[in-house]
Amino acid sequence: MSDLDKFLKKIENNVKIEPKDWMPDGYRKHLQGQMSQHAHSEVIGMQPEGNWISRAPSLRAKVILLAKIQDEAGHGQYLYSAAETLGKSRDEYINELQTRKAKYSSIFNYPTLTWADMGAVGWLVDGAAIVNQVSLQKTSYGPYSRAMVRICKEESFHQRQGYEIISHMALGTPEQKEMAQDALNRTWWPSIMMFGPHDADSARSGDAMKWGIKVESNDELRQRFIDKTVQQAELIGLTIPDPDLKWNEERGSYDFGEINWDEFWAVVNGDGPCNDQRIDHHIKAHEEGRWVREAANAYAQKNN
C-alpha cells in the first residue's frame, strides 16, 4: 500500500494522524494555515475584550472577564503548540501574523464600543466559535483534535458569561437596553461571517473535508449557530438585525438574509475598522518584550 493509501485509509477509519506519520504536503500546509489562523485569532481576540478589563462595571465582572481572556491566551498557546508539531516554530507563525501573511478571524477587527459588546462578544463570537470548535474535536489531526477537546472543556463558561452580561443589560435600564441592542446590531453579521464563505465559494473546503480536517461545512455550522441563537435573543427581548430572518417549517431551520460579502472580504483583506490597530498592538508588545526574552535566554544559557 502506498503512503497516500495508508493515510487515506486512516482518515476513512477515523484513525487520527499524528505528527510523525506520513501526510500529503497539501494536508500539512492546510493544517499549518488553519491551525495558526485559529491560534492567531485567540491571541488577537484578547485585544477587543482586553479593551474593557480596566472599565468592567463590577469586581465580579472584572475577574470573570480577566479569567476569560486569560483562557484565550492559553488557547492560543495550545493551538500554537499543536501547530508547531507540523514542523514550524511559534516564532515563524508569529512572524507570519505580524507581516500579515497569516490571517485571523475578522471579527476581531471590529471595535468594542460599550460594555454591552463584552456581552455580545461572549454570547455571539464565542458562541459561533464553540459551534465550530465542537465540530473540530473530530478533526483528523491528533494534536489539533486534542487541543480542541481541551479548549471546548474550558470554554464552556465563556458563552454563558457573555449571555449573562447582555441579558442583564437587555433587562436593565433603558440606556442599558439600548446598548445591548446596539451591540447585537453591530455584532450579529460579523459573527455569522465567522463561519467563512458559502460552501460553493470556499475554494479550499473540498480538500479540508476530504482529509477530515473539517468535518462539517461552513454553511452547516452557520445554520446550526443561527438556529440555536435566535431563541436566546427573543428570550431577552432583543431583535436580531435581519428582516429576512424567518422560521422555515419545511427545513426545520431559520432562513436568513444575504450576507454582505463585500464587507467580509474588505475586512479579511485588511480594511476592517481595527486591522491596523490589532497588528500594531501585537508588534509593539512583541518588540517591547524583545529585551526581556533575550535576557531570559541569556540567563538560561548561563544557568542550565
Partner: peptide, 8 residues
C-alpha cells in the same frame, strides 16, 4: 538571542 524559548 530573541526567540520564544525552548518547548517543554
Amino acid at each position: 538571542m530573541d526567540n520564544q524559548g525552548d518547548v517543554w
